[in-house]
Design a protein around this nucleic acid. Structure first.
Lengths: 157, 157
DNA sequence: TATGAATCGTTCAGGGTTAGAACGGTTCTG
DNA sequence: CAGAACCGTTCTAACCCTGAACGATTCATA
């Protein structure tokens, strides 16, 4: 439970953002253990939902992690039947990843848990305050090149 | 650079909060390398600013980390002359930690960097939007027992 | 006052997570 | 056809942190 600390702390948005981000990340990670998943697994499932049939290297770039980590993540998800690996017939070096029905179920569950967490998180906020927060996040994400919503198309097939 | 990923991602506040939190944490950590510091070091400096002369165990509880980690952090900060260790004369088991002048300088620098980061972060927001964001963070932190502002007094001397 | 329990700081070993090097198999280039 | 480039995999190593074990000190209590 790396929550940084709970001292007065430097009185900045950045710190509070970091602390709160770590808080929700921890809580979500705790939820995920129920299905033997870690946040990165959800990242992979989510990436495949957006880009079905992506190769492992594409996923690695999308997730900004090392390709070798994608191997581990995909291994686990494949072993539990959440994703399928198919050799690209056109380029037999590439492993194309697809969500199975089980994988889609799992992703739906993960999304649901995130929504529950959202509800908890914003319990102390009025609906319009929560909406304003969401809008601010959108602007922040957009301003920093994080395509939180919408696709990042960089690989025209 | 663990930024989770940059896919569409599940469309929740929680995720955007986690992603943005990781983003600012990473950027700040990168800033800190200029002085050979890590975020936890800043946590320790900041804790000492609030509670000068605290023992290492008190710091550990405040920061919610293992006491053994405080040893490492204090070792490093002591070696660079940012903090001082003084045996408590009344209880010679305790090591009392104090900021040195150098430590206060360092903390001021860290705070300054955080403010710069804040400015970058909120560059895309109008001042009242930024203020609303800060207020929302306050409410969120308060609702989740994170004393982001104000002391946590639990050790009446 | 004596003695065992508790406390503080320290060291050390280990777990968890991740990146990077190395390699086999495949495809591309010329 | 030969060598370069590329993909996925394995393995090693680094990093960060916790928990166990231990010496030194203090407390409790008989």
């Amino acid at each position: 439970m790396p929550l940084m600390n709970d001292v007065k702390w430097v009185d900045t948005l950045s710190f509070r953002l970091g602390v709160l981000g770590a808080l929700v990340a921890d809580r979500y990670a705790a939820d995920l253990t129920a299905h033997d998943l870690k946040p990165k697994h959800v990242g992979l499932l989510s990436a495949l939902d957006v880009a079905p049939g992506a190769s492992q290297l594409e996923i690695a770039k999308l997730m900004r992690v090392a390709p070798s980590l994608v191997v581990t993540l995909a291994d686990h998800l494949e072993s539990t039947g959440a994703v399928e690996r198919l050799r690209d017939p056109a380029d037999r070096r590439r492993q194309l990843l697809y969500l199975t029905d089980r994988g889609r179920e799992l992703l739906a569950w993960c999304t649901d848990r995130a929504l529950v967490l959202d509800a908890e998180l914003t319990a102390g906020l009025t609906p319009d305050q929560a909406a304003a927060l969401g809008a601010a996040f959108d602007r922040l994400a957009a301003a920093h090149g994080l395509p939180v919503r919408g696709r990042t198309r960089r690989d025209p097939t």
